[in-house]
Nucleic acid binder design. Structure first.
Lengths: 124, 124
DNA sequence: ATGCCTGTACGATTTTTGTCGAACATAGCT
DNA sequence: AGCTATGTTCGACAAAAATCGTACAGGCAT
């Protein structure tokens, strides 16, 4: 333990992030709801892509490159957010998403590893 | 390593079990399908109850004590079997179920632990 | 101000899933 | 044979979820 470890770190808690959109609290996460959200292949792809290709940055839904109408994508991102899988913040025009890894690992340990290990079925 | 460990164990491979009903091979299990099967609270209850109250014996669906029409139960057990979550064998009149723990642990490590830890939402 | 860009909101349609009654199948019992 | 108990199958209906067009909202640039 050092003095530096006790000093409050302003940089680690940036105060100017846009507030997240409405989402369930960590304690409110329900396994049934989370599983239902992940049962859709497109949504599983979204979470897996966020986990594997960018823990560090949040991404707008255009970043994923899905060839689907925008209203369909809104629908799926909303489902993920309302289930508690992602956190979304508004940055100017875009709404950027990240996986709520801490909350999910605490509540459902191992779940995200299953998503990381998932491979889409290429035969369909 | 002892000689006894190398001796074939007849008792551990009983030959007279009824054959399982049609089910996906262990290698064919799909995460999306498994998650969709588990996303239903009644089915989650079935799997959890099998895991917590009886790893040792298979159970007919009457054992669970659900107050639902039989045709509804058939529907849910079939969904679980076709997703690869349970194995069902016909014993005379009854069709007994068990969780495919080995296949599931091998393919989706940690998944069944999430089911074990699940608590139904009493507020609903 | 005009236009562009990201994404939402609403609503219509389709598809999928759940629910359950009624009729049936079969094993085991008396 | 007749009865009972377990569970299936079929079909109808209801409920929920996915898909997507159109119209709209609001930053941001020129």
């Amino acid at each position: 333990m050092t003095a530096a470890m006790l000093a409050p770190s302003i940089a680690s808690v940036p105060a100017d992030l846009p507030l997240p959109l409405a989402e369930p609290d960590a304690g409110e996460l329900r396994l049934e709801i989370v599983l239902a959200a992940l049962a859709d292949p497109l949504r599983l792809t979204i979470i897996r892509k966020l986990l594997l290709e960018s823990e560090a940055y949040d991404h707008p839904c255009g970043w994923f490159g899905f060839e689907r109408p925008k209203s369909s994508l809104t629908h799926h991102f909303k489902a993920l957010r309302e289930a508690g899988l992602i956190r979304q913040r508004q940055y100017g025009l875009e709404r950027r998403s990240r996986v709520r890894t801490e909350d999910l690992d605490a509540r459902f340990p191992g779940l995200l590893d299953l998503v990381r290990a998932w491979r889409p079925d290429l035969s369909s």
